[in-house]
Amino acid sequence: MKITETIDIRFPKTLAEALRLQAGEKTRGQLLAGGTDLMVQWASGAPTPERATSIWNLPELDAIEIFDDFIEVGAGVTHAFLRDAAPIHRHLPALVAAAATIGAAQIQARGTLGGNAANASPAGDTAPALLVSGGSVLLASRSGTRTVPLDRFWTAYRRIDAQPDEIIVAFRLPRKGSARERFRKIGTRRAQAISKVMAASRIRIVKGRVTSAAIALGSIAPTPVRLSAVESLLVGQKLTPALIDEAEQLAQATVQPIDDIRSSADYRRWASGRLVRDALENL
């Protein structure tokens, strides 16, 4: 018997039923969405839970809604669905671009936005794009719902601000409006790749000056991070070559990446600045 067969997986048909099942749970690992992370972890010998609750295909988590100021993306929306959802492309281009770099077609068909966020890998591909949107996460439990700003959601390595009885329902992501977004991932190869470093940015320029800047990096810290020092440097300034140089160097001075199997700390530090440069030069 394969290891996943030892897990008692429940299959609620509605969010309410899922919340009821989760009400008494102690750990979050028991929520199973598309399985593209959890099934891999279980198969590779990570501790398996006794029970799991499948939230794949819950209708309440599947929608994308466009509001005047923001887009609400259901946590169960797959990366493939995001890519196909043309109406949101102009509002959240960095997120769509990030989704397109996840795995390949087979993983994109099953991996969900909520799962990617909940897995809380520092290399989670959608996290930097979510961060620069300045949006928030909607969590539900039997006792109600609450909202957590994304920049406070990932609290530590593989930790999120969510209780075991809470389920991520949706992401409320402000539309970019007149700002420009960019996403770039340096991966282990061109497809089916885990990132070595990646950057997402949302920058608004009015009359030649930066009026707002959000830049986030992945794979360079225990959590995805915003580069607030660089953002502060930019706001109110004209994007001159000198300022871009300064932003690149500031990014490199700010980050404290590690060596691992995929890359070196030195390269990651350098590339962090390079991706900031890339974002600023391609607005």
């Binding site: 996943t4 299959f11 399985g35 099934m39 493939a80 087979q106 099953r110």
Partner: peptide
């Protein structure tokens, strides 16, 4: 209609 890797799907998720 979607290509998937069958090694990562628990059968219970298919109604």
């Amino acid at each position: 209609n979607e290509p998937v890797v069958s090694c990562l799907i628990p059968a219970g998720q298919l109604p």
